[in-house]
């Protein structure tokens, strides 16, 4: 008997079940998995976009809003300059067409290395409940861009702000087939309180997260 069979056998015995799982038993579990039934949700009697912006700030992100996609380079340059941050970094390929040079920025469309100081990403969607970005790994959505640089700038189309994580999963099921290698829910900069319960931003991930909503 393999460890697998031993363990599964002991689990069945512990639950007072004998023999292999019946077809009915399997179907009961499969049905539970198929329905995606939601548990009780807290009240969400707010508009998603203002709530999202408000909760981003609670999670220590900063927020900006622009009228259109072509306004992004100038808005990001303004943010970086006013915070005395480096003006160079990397972005996801979906932003390669923007006129970064025209705004005085040097942004390359490639995955981040340990040396890149600014990373510009999009997001699959954003979640209003807690000011969260939902990021999927993939060919053109490099995980390193939101992780290695000290400053993470995330672009969120206003139309992609949903209420809850549950809404995010439903959107993913509608638009994609299966899960990517990794789904990351990011809410604000990296932080710890491991020394004397004192909150410090910027442990291993970004020191700051700046969210730019595009109308």
């Amino acid at each position: 008997m393999s460890a697998r069979e031993n363990i599964l056998g002991r689990i069945r015995a512990a639950n007072g079940k004998t023999g292999a799982a019946s077809a009915a038993e399997r179907e009961a579990v499969a049905a539970r998995l198929r329905t995606h039934a939601r548990g009780p949700l807290p009240s969400m009697d707010w508009d998603p976009l203002p709530r999202f912006k408000e909760r981003c700030i609670v999670m220590m992100s900063t927020v900006d809003q622009v009228a259109s996609r072509s306004d992004l380079p100038a808005a990001i340059a303004r943010y970086l300059t006013s915070n005395r941050l480096p003006l160079g970094g990397v972005c996801w390929p979906e932003f390669a067409d923007l006129d970064w040079g025209g705004a005085g920025l040097d942004i390359a469309a490639r995955p981040a290395t340990g040396r890149d100081m600014v990373g510009v990403t999009g997001s699959f969607c954003a979640i209003a409940e807690n000011g969260t970005l939902m990021l999927l790994s993939g060919e053109d959505t490099h995980a390193t861009t939101s992780l290695l640089p000290e400053t993470h700038i995330a672009v969120v189309p206003a139309s992609r702000v949903v209420r809850s994580m549950e809404d995010g999963w439903d959107l993913l099921r509608r638009e994609r087939e299966g899960l990517p290698r990794q789904v990351n829910f990011v809410s604000g900069p990296s932080r710890t309180a491991d020394i004397e319960m004192t909150l410090v931003m910027g442990v291993h991930g970004p020191f700051r997260v700046h969210v730019v909503v595009v109308n």
Partner: peptide, 20 residues
């Protein structure tokens, strides 16, 4: 209300992924 990173991992790097 939520922790900073919730990471769901499903399998290794996919054929076209640049990281993982």
């Amino acid at each position: 209300s939520i922790s900073n990173y919730l990471s769901f991992t499903t399998g290794p790097k996919r054929p076209d992924d640049k990281d993982g």
